[in-house]
């Protein structure tokens, strides 16, 4: 009937199959260890190093605590004002270069910290510090827009300036005739 299996006769075939399996298995293991990143599975089914890479990115925006380390007087001015929750960078920009200079100056007293420049009207591209005695800064929040909550102090510029009897209606710093930035309430 059928030919019986004989270990002796089929040895060469078996060897070939075994060799093939070993090569295939070894190749798969090598490919697997090569393709799967080392840190994969450290915290879960993902590359663990990705977590440290993302958290190692440096923050760009400056938080208030950094500014108030040196400018402590502003903290007192703002304490009771409606602007107490308004961060420095909302009106003054981010101050990246300013702080780099401050750090250098702390290490080496001969380094001078540059004075802030006037605002160029662009919050978006600016990472440096600027002074903003400019109505556009105020109006970026306080101009009346449909959708604002009722409790928020928003104005229609023309009628507000007329009502309050502002002197230089077209001047950029017209708001500062009555208000100050850090403590604007009246």
């Amino acid at each position: 009937m059928s030919r019986h299996f004989s270990l002796l006769r089929d040895t060469r075939h078996l060897q070939a199959v075994a060799l093939g399996l070993i090569v295939l298995g070894g190749g798969l293991i090598a490919a697997r260890s090569h393709l799967i990143p080392k840190s994969f599975g450290e915290h879960g089914p993902y590359r663990g190093d990705a977590l440290t890479e993302i958290s190692a990115q440096q923050p760009v925006l400056t938080s208030d605590t950094t500014c108030l380390k040196c400018h402590d007087s502003v903290r007192k001015e703002r304490a009771e004002s409606p602007h107490k929750d308004v961060a420095c960078l909302h009106c003054h920009g981010n101050g990246h270069e300013h702080m780099a200079q401050a750090a250098n100056a702390a290490a080496d007293p001969s380094v001078t910290i540059e004075k802030a420049k006037p605002w160029d009207g662009d919050f978006f591209t600016k990472l440096d510090l600027f002074i903003t005695k400019d109505r556009a800064t105020c109006l970026s929040c306080h101009e009346k827009v449909v959708g604002m909550p009722a409790g928020f102090r928003s104005i229609d510029v023309k009628s507000h300036l007329a009502d309050q009897g502002a002197e230089n209606i077209d001047s950029p710093d017209v708001c500062f005739e009555c208000h100050t930035g850090h403590s604007p309430g009246i």
Binding site: I54, S55, A56, P59, L61, S63, D85, L89, H90, C141
Partner: peptide, 23 residues
């Protein structure tokens, strides 16, 4: 959006939270 993972792991607030003037 990562809720600014690189900031919150340094005990800072996300950039949008930092930038919101009204909380």
């Amino acid at each position: 959006c990562t809720w600014c993972y690189h900031r919150i792991t340094k005990n800072q607030e996300p950039a949008c939270v930092e930038a919101c003037p009204v909380g």
